[in-house]
């Protein structure tokens, strides 16, 4: 791949990284999730971009 300007792509990667980190920290701190925690850990880590979003919407118990 030639001609890719990393200054353009970097913010995309950084945003993804922040999402993953925040989701993982939240997953560790939260008491209970909908479904097993290890499953959510896999989803967050493996499905990039969409994984953390799925976790925040469906993974967290309302209360």
């Amino acid at each position: 791949m030639v001609g890719i300007n990393w200054a353009v792509i970097a913010p995309l990667l950084i945003i993804q990284l922040i999402l993953v980190i925040v989701a993982i920290i939240d997953l560790v701190k939260v008491k209970e999730t909908n479904g097993p925690k290890w499953m959510w850990a896999l989803i967050i880590l493996l499905a990039n971009i969409i994984g953390p979003i799925l976790y925040f919407i469906f993974g967290r118990r309302q209360r």
Binding site: V8, L12, I15, I18, V22, A23, I53, F56, R60
Partner: peptide, 24 residues
């Protein structure tokens, strides 16, 4: 519940996805 962190980030991602892919 972290909405203040992830919602802005996701909206940013959605807004810049198309400009960047179109450019490349």
């Amino acid at each position: 519940n972290k909405k203040w962190i992830w919602v802005p980030l996701v909206i940013i991602l959605l807004s810049i996805m198309d400009p960047i892919t179109t450019y490349y």
